[in-house]
Amino acid sequence: MKSGILLLATASVTLAAPVDDSIAQIREQYAIINEADLEWETLKPPFEDIVEGDFKRGSGGGKLRKSVLSLVTSDHGGSSTEIYYNPAGDPIFLFENSSYWTFTQKENETKDNVTEHRIYFKDGKIIQALEKNYEFLNEDEKASAAEKAQNKPIATNAQTSQRFLPTLLDLKTAAAPKIVVLSDELSRAMDRLEEGVIPLDNDAWGVMKLPRKIAMTPATQDSKSAAFAMLLEMQVIQEGEDVEQPNSYDFDVLERTDRSAVVAVTLSGMQDDEIESVRYRVEMRLEDEMWILKDLRQQMKKWPDRAIDGQVEWFKP
């Protein structure tokens, strides 16, 4: 792999003044962190399909300030993800550089293709997300190509933030084996940066019949795990290859209070000639230290070549 981590430079983007001020403050914070003499801990997670990978945590004054996940893949590519934390332990900035190289039509000539993401967080929300794409033929062209490329703003929402924040917080203390799982979660969240809002309106979902014996699971499980456990208990989904493969399932916490939760569980890449993805809306309440299923609904999405003209992407069966 030829590409390395690039400088955290961003093109100018027109912003509302309060957001602009917040981003300026975040940039000041991560500049200070990068200049600090941090104490580093290096972990070697047991990645199976990665040529080389490690995870580093950098601390200053006894507090985690930065972590770096570096991966080299077998397809001439790799990525580096830097996560910055404020003194309270909240994520404030994420910088991802992913790249791959290919041969050109000239003998022994290669070309690097780079995608950068910059995501700014404040008060548990994404306040700005940017994407930049560029390519270059040799190291001498890299800096110029990166400078000329424009950052494209990405529209985000509360659900986008929820896909990132639990993973970024778990990475602060996770042991090496857990980092493998969290790395997959982070990759899926990045893939879904531009995904729209999942509807909360019940009318957008097809009703599924509940079992005679209401499904339940211990309150010790977080809402995502509880929703998945209930679908397994009801045999709506099966524990097996389909849900164990990377990028085949995702979770979105649509609503959450102290005593209730609404979670969307999405299964993609279905082994079906017509349906590509199915997602379930699981509504639960906490009663007597148990998650109790209150309502279950469903949406489907067809494979692109099977969709009917004019049909919405997600539909209720």
Rank of each mutant, 00 (worst) to 15 (best):
D288I: 01
D288M: 08
T102M: 05
R306Y: 07
V72P: 05
L71A: 06
S268W: 01
E96S: 12
A36T: 15
E283Y: 02
N34I: 06
I92A: 03
E287P: 00
V13T: 13
F228L: 13
R65Q: 14
A155G: 09
K294W: 00
T266N: 07
A176R: 02
S3F: 09
Q25F: 01
D250A: 15
G62K: 01
A174V: 11
M190C: 06
G53V: 07
N247T: 06
E276F: 12
E244C: 11
D112P: 14
D203L: 07
V207M: 10
L71G: 05
H76A: 02
I32M: 10
S187A: 13
E239A: 13
F47D: 04
E48A: 15
A175E: 15
D49E: 14
V236W: 04
Y84T: 09
G310V: 07
G77S: 06
L6I: 07
Q221T: 02
A9S: 11
G196V: 00
I179Q: 01
R192A: 15
S22L: 13
S67M: 14
E139G: 15
V263N: 11
K294N: 13
E244I: 09
T217D: 05
E131A: 09
P211Y: 10
K106Y: 11
L71S: 06
E135H: 11
F164D: 00
T115V: 14
N151S: 10
R192H: 12
T102E: 15
S248G: 03
M208G: 01
R281E: 04
K63I: 10
E289N: 15
D250H: 08
L130S: 05
D309V: 12
G53Y: 02
A24W: 08
E28K: 12
N34M: 10
I92P: 02
E241P: 03
E194F: 00
N133G: 02
Y30Q: 10
D54G: 07
E283R: 12
V312K: 14
S144M: 13
M270F: 11
